[in-house]
């Protein structure tokens, strides 16, 4: 699993960007440096960036509280650590309307297929936060009955803790937000090498004599998603 660098600039280095900003104000940047700086710092109008900005600022979490972490997840809705500041207070009950799934709590083997089903029912683009130790790894309970979420679904951000403080979950959500904003190629398929698993409706009905049935979805949508 290759880690992708955040930001298109110099490795997302905050300090370097600050120096470049100062240089620009003084009028010392020019040429390709100036272009690069403008590209990074201004909200330019490529539709991707605008769309990512909109997506990250209004993520609708799905109500998926399983266990103790769910209580701390509900606490971020509360007034002290207010997730409404970041636009995510509308927890949607229906997975069709949600785009962020916070797996808060231990996933038992009976529940795992259901979690997967609900994740599949969510529409692209969708992200997942594995909240707490039980969903990321096995947590406190390393036994026959639970499954780490990584085994059956892609996870974007893992928030450690048992249960993580609401502030920790907010940090995880903010990290996810930054990830969405900065990295245009956000689909989980690229990160997990799941290219080719998109379901594409072939306009011509499947030719029963042709041999292809497994794996190839073709159609030029390889690689990217979202």
């Amino acid at each position: 699993m290759k880690r992708q660098k955040l930001g298109n600039g110099p490795d997302g280095d905050f300090r370097a960007r600050g120096l470049a900003a100062r240089a620009m104000l003084r009028g010392e940047l020019d040429g390709p440096e100036l272009e690069k700086h403008v590209e990074e710092s201004l909200l330019i109008t490529t539709l991707d960036r605008a769309a990512n900005w909109a997506r990250s600022n209004a993520m609708f979490p799905a109500t998926f509280g399983l266990a103790c972490c769910a209580i701390e997840m509900m606490a971020i809705v509360g007034a002290r650590v207010d997730v409404a500041r970041f636009g995510s207070e509308a927890f949607r009950a229906s997975p069709r309307q949600a785009d962020l799934m916070i797996i808060s709590g231990r996933v038992s083997i009976k529940m795992a297929p259901i979690v997967r089903r609900i994740y599949d029912q969510m529409l692209e683009p969708k992200w997942t936060i594995a909240m707490g130790a039980c969903s990321s790894s096995m947590g406190v309970f390393n036994n026959y009955a639970i499954v780490p979420a990584d085994k059956f679904m892609p996870v974007d951000v893992h928030v450690p803790g048992c249960p993580p403080r609401p502030e920790a979950l907010m940090h995880g959500i903010l990290k996810l937000r930054k990830k969405i904003q900065d990295d245009p190629d956000m689909g989980w398929r690229t990160r997990y090498g799941g290219g080719g698993t998109e379901e594409v409706v072939e306009p011509a009905a499947a030719d029963p004599t042709a041999g292809h049935s497994i794996g190839v979805s073709g159609g030029g949508r390889m690689g990217t998603s979202a």
């Binding site: 790894s137 096995m138 309970f141 390393n142 036994n143 026959y144 009955a145 780490p148």
Partner: peptide
């Protein structure tokens, strides 16, 4: 599962 000769199971810790 809760018989004593049933293994506890779990994932190996990395």
């Amino acid at each position: 599962p809760q018989r004593r000769d049933f293994p506890v199971g779990g994932e190996p810790v990395f």
